[in-house]
């Protein structure tokens, strides 16, 4: 079996690699949590790409029901068809729409199934999927057939911690928390996205970035994805390295700060800080 070791576009730390490999080997769902923008959703895409498997994504919204992942029975259109005398009304299968889980179970070869942002759904949602994720099978009430996974899919579940997940559900998963990358990992991540970036430019940008993250009271601290966007802008705008070097953010707001700070109160806070420093200086 191939081991997941990250990819050209994705830097996976040792413990993340271990988590993915353990969940692939033991065929259990892997629950991923972490700050927004640390690459939770991307992980599934990269695992699928690295292992050469198809990716099925099920994006959860607040209105999503567990049943929709299995199948949906469209009783209303069957009723209508019966009044119109349509021939296909005699086979109930014509009105059953397969959900993501069904597709993943029925796939000819093993697939990667991403259940994205499971915490967005109702509190009961994970409980409704317990048996399905454990046994990897479910029965279709309308037709009486049982759908059993041909190949147990690799299931990756992400959560943003908006709600606590039930214990029974957690017991069935492996759990990995993506910590915010340290400076060395961050360098590796930037290298992957901007291989042409010069070393001193990278250092200067990282320094500013970590300094901004240190500012107390930010509503939304900039994360990896914001840093990558910001560097993209810096490169595109040809910002000279001097603009970043030897300057504390307290003296001057970093160029193109809009990519780092997404909240106007945060920008305001940084401006206030800079203003106070100038006055004291």
């Amino acid at each position: 079996m191939t081991k997941f070791t990250g990819s050209e576009k994705y830097v996976a730390t040792d413990d993340l690699q271990l988590a993915v490999n353990a969940s692939v080997t033991l065929q259990r769902p892997l629950l991923i949590k972490g700050e927004p923008g640390t690459g939770k959703t991307m992980l599934a895409e990269e695992v699928a790409a690295a292992m050469g498997k198809k990716l099925l994504s099920w994006h959860i919204k607040s209105t999503t029901k567990a049943q929709q992942g299995l199948y949906e029975y469209d009783a209303v259109s069957r009723l209508r068809d019966s009044q119109l005398g349509d021939a296909k009304v005699h086979d109930i299968k014509n009105y059953i729409k397969q959900g993501m889980l069904w597709q993943a179970f029925n796939a000819e070869e093993q697939v990667v199934l991403l259940i994205d942002e499971i915490d967005k759904a109702d509190i009961e949602f994970p409980n409704d999927l317990l048996v399905e994720l454990d046994k990897m099978e479910f029965s279709v009430y309308e037709t009486g057939e049982t759908i059993k996974a041909i190949h147990r899919p690799i299931i990756i579940i992400t959560s943003n911690n908006e709600k606590e997940l039930p214990d029974a559900f957690l017991r069935r998963c492996f759990f990995h928390y993506i910590t915010f990358p340290d400076k060395k990992t961050m360098e590796a991540i930037i290298k992957v996205h901007h291989p042409e970036l010069k070393k001193n430019m990278l250092n200067a940008a990282l320094e500013v970035f970590f300094e901004v993250r240190e500012v107390p009271g930010l509503k939304k601290k900039p994360s990896t994805s914001e840093l990558i966007d910001w560097i993209k802008l810096l490169v595109a705008d040809d910002i000279p390295i001097e603009a970043l070097q030897n300057k504390s953010i307290k003296e001057a707001i970093p160029p193109l700060y809009g990519a780092l700070l997404k909240n106007e109160q945060d920008v305001h806070m940084l401006q206030k800080l800079a203003f106070m420093m100038r006055r004291q200086g």
Binding site: D14, D15, L18, A19, N21, A22, T25, L26, L31, D167, L170, R171, C173, F174, F175, H176
Partner: peptide
């Protein structure tokens, strides 16, 4: 997981694996 040799002979990896399996929050 240990039986299937997801990790072997490394205390650091054992730490990661046991945390992965036992801790859910």
């Amino acid at each position: 997981a240990l039986e299937k040799q997801v990790v072997f002979a490394s205390i650091d990896e054992f730490y990661q694996l046991s945390r992965l399996c036992m801790i859910k929050d």
